[in-house]
Design a protein around this nucleic acid. Structure first.
Lengths: 341, 341
DNA sequence: TCCATCATCCGAAACGTTTCGGATCCCAAC
DNA sequence: GTTGGGATCCGAAACGTTTCGGATGATGGA
């Protein structure tokens, strides 16, 4: 069907070897013959068979991506991240092959699937920290980049937003508005980011000389409903709270709705800041003050690190830690010094 | 490095041929020898090299996916759709290879890229109807499934939500609530879905014996801002309008915001129904009545059609047209017979 | 004249599979 | 005893590349 290297050789009158070397820009081929070979290749509409190339060079110019489940709450983020990965990969003339995390039983299985396909490396997203086989990963001999799950080895690393910093910025913002009693609605503890965000929250409180109370922290699960419950529980148990920091926009929106249902005005009575800056943050009322993660850049950096690893066997991968910024909108405001209601 | 078929042959004492046939479940191999071969394969940790397999069988068990740009307004949909594609592909033991639509110049280029990789077919999403090379696609000799762009050929088809039906359902719903003067905020005309939704809107009006007026239709561009402008323009020009149908949730949200800013209550004064059922539809106030498209199923069906085409050369691909349903929420209500305000 | 060097080209092996076309052996039927 | 046929196995070619290790001929210097 499609023209092969042999066809080009036959038509142009040179050997397969010479045609290959001509087309690949090697130096030991006369400029005139190269010209003729390139010409007949064009005429025959020749395109190299990458599968055959891959078999002999053992380079796929492609990486794997495990993703797209266990993270419904981040759906739109995934799209942005994949977009960034795609662009970075395309810049390096790489392609992306998608796998489902669904049926994944062990880390070895993921690596093995990629090896079968001849892929150079893999980025895995959507893992939980309590995954039993996480430890295998850091000593794997196959380039791996994890997303939002800490791991470090000679051929493995991870990318993440600086969650500690993000949480600190959220609290800093609230403190700068005069808030002194700040509650937190956290995500579930199986997510690494939950620990980090709690840490940032506590660091910030400490830095401002504020007291850290366990009763000010509610453990949710990133869902809107848990944000609702968190707000209700925190404000009933601690009526002095004037601001809430939620570890996700979804929970923040739930909290706002619950507060409004309880008769509080946001931000007049209680300020709320979220985390993520998802689409809907600007569609709710009031618009959500939140911490923005740049998932596009995130994806780019993940793939960049991976490709660097692939191209340079000696390269020791570094942890990529992305800054995030506060986006100030309508859900936060100065504390009411007169007390509430 | 990794064990090869030859290794298994050497260790087990059989020929490469027999090992291959044993492992692939062919009938002309003794059960006892098969057992021994499988055993040594397990011991050697043998996994078949799919690249080599692919080279000889010319089956990649993988399809391409062009996507992930030109459709920022549908970001989260893409994630759901890819999720569906992944699952369907995985069920057939297929993989998905991602490409960027960004640098795509011609249809031939897409097909050629996939061919190089040995892929069996491709699904392309995010095209515009005014793409100059759309016509090439329907007579391609390479299995193609388009998303939301009509094309039909021996090896090409498209999947789409039944936009006409969806729009009709939206209008039916409004009419059943007593509305008789219904405006529409449409998307830009470069999108095929815009034409379809307008058609459905008009069909429904006709079916209910209502007048079709051009002045009741505003052409937006799917953005929130254009929804805002649409609502303002339509209600200023036609104060008798009591309901709006927007061709996207984003425009619907914009319309609601604008209406509220103009002093109208939604749904007491004006009802609004959207299209898509995006995440944020339940986070806005009032929650959005809208037409839900099931993008997950959408992705599954796209890939199913493609794989059927790949596996059966004689199969004539069918247009897949997904039903969509009305989700009734707070943004629509009975018309106020007493007039507005 | 001879030898070294250089530019240019090519044959053949290799990558790891699948599969075509036998080969071998054994047993039953004639 | 011959034949036929089934069960079981294997050698070798093929898929479309890349690349190692030369081969060839021309050129220039000694």
């Amino acid at each position: 069907m499609a023209a092969t290297l042999r066809d080009v050789a036959r038509v142009s009158g040179f050997s397969v070897t010479t045609v290959s070397r001509a087309l690949n820009g090697h130096s030991d081929v006369n400029e005139e013959t190269r010209r003729r070979i390139v010409e007949t290749a064009r005429q025959l509409n020749y395109v190299p068979n990458r599968v055959a190339q891959q078999l002999v060079t053992r380079k796929a110019n492609a990486v794997g991506l495990y993703s797209l489940d266990r993270e419904s709450f981040l759906n739109q983020f995934i799209a942005l991240m994949i977009g960034g990965m795609m662009d970075e990969a395309t810049n390096h003339d790489f392609n992306l092959m998608l796998f489902s995390t669904q049926r994944l039983k062990t880390a070895q299985e993921a690596i093995s699937q990629c090896r079968q396909r001849g892929l150079g490396g893999v980025v895995i997203s959507g893992l939980r920290t309590d995954e039993p086989w996480l430890d295998e990963l850091n000593q794997a001999d196959f380039p791996i980049v994890l997303v939002d799950v800490p791991v470090q080895g000679p051929r493995a690393t991870y990318v993440s937003v600086n969650n500690v910093l993000g949480a600190r910025r959220a609290v800093d913002h609230l403190v700068s508005l005069g808030h002194r009693t700040i509650g937190m609605i956290n995500g579930h503890s199986a997510a690494w980011v939950s620990h980090q965000r709690l840490m940032g929250y506590q660091e910030a409180l400490r830095a401002h000389g504020l007291e850290i109370r366990d009763s000010y922290v509610y453990e949710g699960d990133f869902s809107k409903e848990s944000g609702r419950r968190g707000a209700e529980h925190l404000l009933k148990a601690n009526p002095e709270i004037t601001a809430l920091f939620a570890a996700s926009d979804l929970m923040a929106v739930g909290a706002v709705e619950q507060l409004q249902a309880m008769g509080f005005s946001v931000p007049d009575h209680v300020s709320v800041v979220g985390f993520d800056d998802q689409d809907f943050a600007i569609h709710v009322s009031p618009q959500l003050t939140t911490i923005r993660q740049d998932m596009y850049t995130f994806g780019r950096l993940a793939v960049r690190e991976l490709i660097t690893m692939i191209n340079d066997t000696a390269y020791i991968p570094k942890h990529v830690d992305l800054p995030c910024v506060l986006v100030q909108r309508g859900s936060t405001g100065p504390v009411r010094t007169m007390g509430r209601c």
